Simulated scan of single mutants.
Amino acid sequence: MADFVRVAEATELTDPGKTLIEVDGDLVALFRVNGQFYAIDDVCTHDGGPLVEGELIDYKIACPRHGAKFDIRTGAALTMPALRGTRSHDVKIEEGGVWVRLRSGYATDGPSAHAAAAPATHASDALASEPSLPGIASGQPSHASSGTADVAEATAQSPSGPSGPSSQRLSEELIYEMLKAVKDPELFVNIVDLGLIYGVTFAPAADAADKQHVAIDMTMTSPACPAGPQLIADTKRAVGGHGDVSAVEVRIVMDPPWTPDRMTDAARDQLGIF
């Protein structure tokens, strides 16, 4: 077992407060709440976000990227999109100083306690393990095909008669409704409610005077989102089935970056983010 390391003076941290420290080469988020000190790895297990930069509310820290919450006392993941906890560490106060000893285990109780392997220790390690867009995501979750299945099912069930989407007049509102069939394969929330769609534009098709070229500006929850290629393909499939659509172009936009504020209340309820 590692030894305790003196990392700060007890008086340096406000109550409540948080700061980033380094212990034996690992980045650790140190917290002080109600007179007690706590330490967990400074990494969100969803995509490697720096937890110490998030909002601290009571004993919960929220990842600044996607809003996943962790218990600072145990490291447990409390809300989606985090599927597993982060590592917590031993803390003691001695001779006016704060001492931290690294642990080797990870908290696993959370929205999906049966999730697979432990996360990377550093945010850079977590991001490096994920492929960038475009391309096939080698680290994609085993249930990633569910989004495609949802699109296929919605397409099969959509009526083609007078009231069906394929026969309705093409409009931005209709495109958004069609895109609700596309779900993030990791979060199981549609991309419209997640706030991934930044805009929809139309232009006359070059190869057919009576059809439209549809361009969709879409973002990802993170630049290295492993579900990106699938979401792009599902988006094209969901919209391309309309009779007035000649082609669908998906343009990935990362500025402004996605934040949890873009999610609808329905998405927040589904993910347990309040």
Rank of each mutant, 00 (worst) to 15 (best):
T45Q: 12
D47V: 09
G48T: 00
G48K: 04
P50S: 13
L51G: 04
L51N: 10
V52M: 09
V52N: 12
V52H: 15
V52I: 09
E53F: 08
G54M: 06
G54E: 02
G54K: 01
G54L: 03
E55T: 15
E55H: 13
E55Q: 14
L56C: 13
I57F: 09
I57Q: 13
D58T: 13
D58N: 15
Y59D: 15
Y59M: 03
K60V: 04
I61F: 12
I61Y: 03
A62Q: 12
A62G: 06
A62W: 06
C63H: 02
C63Q: 07
P64N: 03
P64T: 06
P64Q: 05
R65K: 12
R65Y: 10
R65Q: 13
R65F: 11
G67A: 15
G67L: 14
G67W: 04
A68I: 02
A68T: 00
K69V: 02
K69C: 12
D71Q: 05
I72C: 14
I72P: 03
I72N: 03
I72E: 06
R73D: 07
T74F: 08
T74Y: 03
T74M: 08
G75F: 02
G75T: 03
G75P: 03
A76F: 08
A76D: 14
A77Q: 01
L78S: 00
L78G: 02
T79H: 09
T79N: 11
T79G: 08
T79P: 00
M80D: 05
M80W: 01
M80P: 00
